[in-house]
């Protein structure tokens, strides 16, 4: 049970983000929620690739007595998380710029108001 605490942290982040996405009406708050949801997913990917008492897979000045490859974390989840983080930044920038544009157009950031003015 105690071994699942990092998974619990990742899922708590994901649930907080999901709450913000589902229940908030401000577009900026929805963007923040999507960002938190994304960081929960990233944390989950990283925890899946961790080994007990392992160091980062970098050979420069490796600590003495590190067993290769059992003493190193898995590199592929880390690389894919890097990809995911950069894509998250790109999506966040697009969301915020569209929120700015919507505010200029409708004068509000409330998602219900925007739906009402659709015609």
């Amino acid at each position: 049970m105690i071994h699942n605490v990092p998974y619990l942290a990742a899922v708590a982040l994901a649930i907080i983000g999901l709450y913000a996405v589902l229940f908030k009406r401000n577009l900026i708050k929805i963007a923040i929620g999507i960002s938190i949801l994304e960081s929960g997913v990233n944390l989950f990917l990283i925890t899946l690739g961790y080994r007990e008492n392992a160091v980062a897979p970098i050979y420069t000045n490796l600590p003495e007595g590190t067993s290769i490859p059992e003493g190193m974390t898995l590199p592929v989840p880390q690389a894919l998380t890097l990809t995911s983080i950069v894509i998250g930044v790109a999506v966040l920038a697009l969301m915020l710029s569209f929120a700015v544009k919507i505010y200029q157009h409708y004068g509000t950031l409330d998602s219900r108001e925007i739906r009402r003015l659709r015609e």
């Binding site: 699942n4 925890t47 690739g49 080994r51 007990e52 897979p57 050979y59 290769i68 490859p69």
Partner: peptide
């Protein structure tokens, strides 16, 4: 937490990254 199951691909990359790409950082 901390005990991944199937790690053949990652073990191969950790062992051969230095020879195949010349980079210290896997």
């Amino acid at each position: 937490f901390g005990e991944p199951k199937s790690t053949e691909m990652d073990d191969y990359i950790i062992k051969n990254a230095q020879n195949e790409t010349g980079s210290n950082n896997a």
